[in-house]
Amino acid sequence: MPEDLEKQYQAKGLLRAEMARRNSSYEDLAEKLKGIGVEENPKNFSNKVGRGSFTAGFFLQCLEAIGCKSVRIVDGSDD
């Protein structure tokens, strides 16, 4: 699998995991994004995350909106 595709899957997984930890749905997060000035339709947001096709900036906006201050990135190798 190409490395960029692997990174898209990793980013998608990280965002979904953080949403799950906070029991946040796509609708919840779309509403929270509005609170920080980012207009995102819940359906489009769901599709974007499902594809993993979002920018690093959008990823950080999502983390900010759900109150996530840090994420642990594990690449599968020994720590």
Rank of each mutant, 00 (worst) to 15 (best):
M19Q: 04
A17S: 12
S70N: 07
L63I: 01
G67M: 04
I36E: 02
T55D: 03
R21H: 09
G57A: 05
I36L: 01
C62K: 03
I66H: 01
N41Y: 05
G76F: 03
I66M: 15
L15W: 01
M1R: 14
G50F: 05
I66P: 00
R51I: 06
G35Q: 09
S53T: 10
N23T: 11
M1L: 11
L5W: 13
D28S: 09
D75I: 15
N41F: 02
I66L: 07
S70A: 12
K7T: 11
E64N: 08
R16L: 15
V38H: 03
V71Y: 02
N23L: 09
S53N: 14
Y9D: 12
E3D: 11
K48D: 08
G37Q: 01
S24G: 06
V38L: 01
G57L: 07
D75N: 14
Q8W: 11
D75K: 13
K12S: 05
E3S: 13
P42W: 01
L14C: 06
S53M: 06
G35D: 06
E27P: 05
L14R: 03
S46D: 12
P42A: 04
I36A: 02
I73E: 00
D78K: 15
R21F: 09
L14S: 09
S70R: 10
Q8F: 13
L33S: 03
K69G: 07
D28H: 07
R16D: 10
L63W: 00
A56I: 13
K7Y: 11
L33Y: 00
K34I: 09
D4R: 15
G13A: 12
N44K: 10
L5G: 05
V74D: 14
K7C: 05
D79P: 15
R22V: 02
V49Q: 04
N41G: 05
E3V: 13
P2L: 14
M1E: 12
F59R: 00
R21V: 05
Y26V: 11
R16T: 08
E31C: 06
V71N: 02
D28K: 06
F45N: 10
S70V: 04
Q61P: 01
S24M: 15
